[in-house]
Design a protein around this nucleic acid. Structure first.
Lengths: 267, 267
DNA sequence: CGTAGCTTTGAAGATTTTCAACCTTAGTGG
DNA sequence: CCACTAAGGTTGAAAATCTTCAAAGCTACG
């Protein structure tokens, strides 16, 4: 079943119209009509090229909370773009625990690390009801060969991911627990804002445990810092509902965002 | 001045034949004759495509220790491949210190993070005498449009970088100081081995300070761990000369290498 | 030979983790 | 409709790890 491109709707409220008859027009919501088109791959493409891209995009039924999008070790076939909802990527540590490697909100792409060796290095699981677009990578490559601006977009996409990860590395290497939590909240805030949601009032779709794993902190430390930020009147936190009361003070807690390519890369 | 593709030669001994007359043949050492061709972009390309790639590669005079390859904020024009030597990339932290973001050995590529927004987010400086190939990115993109296997190589290159950084993030998030230092040494070991050098006996081109900055540790902690590993008969360290005596035990100190795409990526 | 830069080592201090207990909420079934 | 249960969240105290500050040793270079 195809899934229409629902946006600007809280995923908390998202219901899956499985049994509702949807008109053909709505089912075929194309890239050009998708409100993510300014965030997603089509950005900067000519309309006819967007249509060619659209032709290879598959839109499957949404994932339910806890469903896997893919598992570590599976062969790599597709990139995925989150349309609504949120997905976490994670690996298994030697002691059996989960190590969260990333959170992916709508408009964000998953699977970029798997291009390299043809299989996924991590697993991806939905944190809430989540709809994704599926982009068969081989066809995307073929298409990119013939559309220079698409090729360029893809290079930019990969480059951006590298920059983000480098920023994260710098944060994990340099930052205190406070800095990490502040930075995490600001990152979410900016990402929500860019997508038309409130930058100061949102729900976390992940647990304290998952945040801690991502930030390299014990879950108790995350909890304590939320409490402290609340005591300082910077936040209002009620379980997963976060309100940023003083975003400037939050920003001042993060010394600096260092964005840079990093580490080795041998082809 | 063009610089011949010198390889398998310790950069410690590298002298710059500035005034030595080099025959045309030697100057024009092409990608296809470069011993890095199995590590570098030409990997998997047909010979005629390697020649086309070669035609856009510039080979400048080597950098001396401390020379900048590029600085943060400069416009992005080229990717760089390290032919011999080593380069560090780093950003400035708010308190004026350097934050090392990566070490790049020969065969490794720099500048990938800058594709995104057209300017370098970090600075790059030579740790020792270093020769690099310069790849004008615009021309590389044009070329890749016409050579699918080159496009594919470039996607793989970027993807590999993402995987490496994710691994590093996991290490910084999860690992103890011991784990980080062990992992760092193993990473160097593998990279030297792949390039035909000893995997167990090598010189560090970076200081304890730089290692610490990269691993998110105080330089004293790095020093203490080197000492401890030496006391445990796992290493022999003499200033910058490292010998790995028991690589299995070193490996067992690193719980797991988690390789995975990470963090958000919105195009 | 002297100096500057890098490295090592020690001891005190700060931050974060771990362990443990308790609280809250949402969902389940009587 | 309410009690029960499980999962997630909060809080406290002790313990471990790492950093900071300080001093001294070593090497290379002029």
């Amino acid at each position: 079943m195809e899934f229409p491109c629902i946006t600007r709707q809280s995923t908390e409220l998202l219901t899956v119209p499985d049994k509702i008859v949807v008109s053909i027009d709505k089912i075929k919501v194309a890239c050009r009509d998708c409100s993510l088109s300014t965030l997603c791959l089509p950005m900067g493409l000519r309309p006819e090229d967007v249509d060619r891209l659209d032709a290879i995009v598959k839109r499957n039924r949404p994932l339910q909370r806890g469903d896997h999008l893919f598992r570590a070790g599976e062969p790599f076939r597709n990139l995925y773009v989150v349309k609504t909802g949120a997905i976490k990527t994670f690996t298994q540590t030697s002691d059996g625990n989960e190590q969260v490697v990333g959170f992916h909100l709508h408009g964000e792409v998953l699977g970029l690390d798997a291009i390299q060796d043809g299989s996924h290095g991590c697993s991806a699981r939905a944190l809430e009801t989540t709809a994704v677009c599926e982009l068969p990578f081989e066809r995307l490559e073929e298409l990119a060969s013939g559309i220079p601006s698409l090729q360029h977009q893809m290079f930019r996409l990969l480059s951006k991911e590298i920059g983000h990860e480098a920023e994260m590395m710098a944060l994990l290497g340099r930052g205190t627990a406070e800095e990490r939590v502040a930075s995490f909240l600001l990152s979410l805030s900016e990402r929500f804002k860019r997508r038309g949601f409130s930058a100061t009032d949102f729900f976390l779709s992940m647990s304290r445990q998952e945040i801690g794993s991502y930030l390299g902190l014990a879950l108790e430390t995350v909890s304590r810092l939320f409490t402290r930020l609340q005591d300082d009147k910077i936040l209002k936190v009620e379980r997963r509902h976060v309100q940023i009361l003083d975003i400037e003070r939050l920003r001042s807690m993060v010394s600096q965002h260092a964005a840079c390519e990093a580490h080795q890369a041998s082809p």
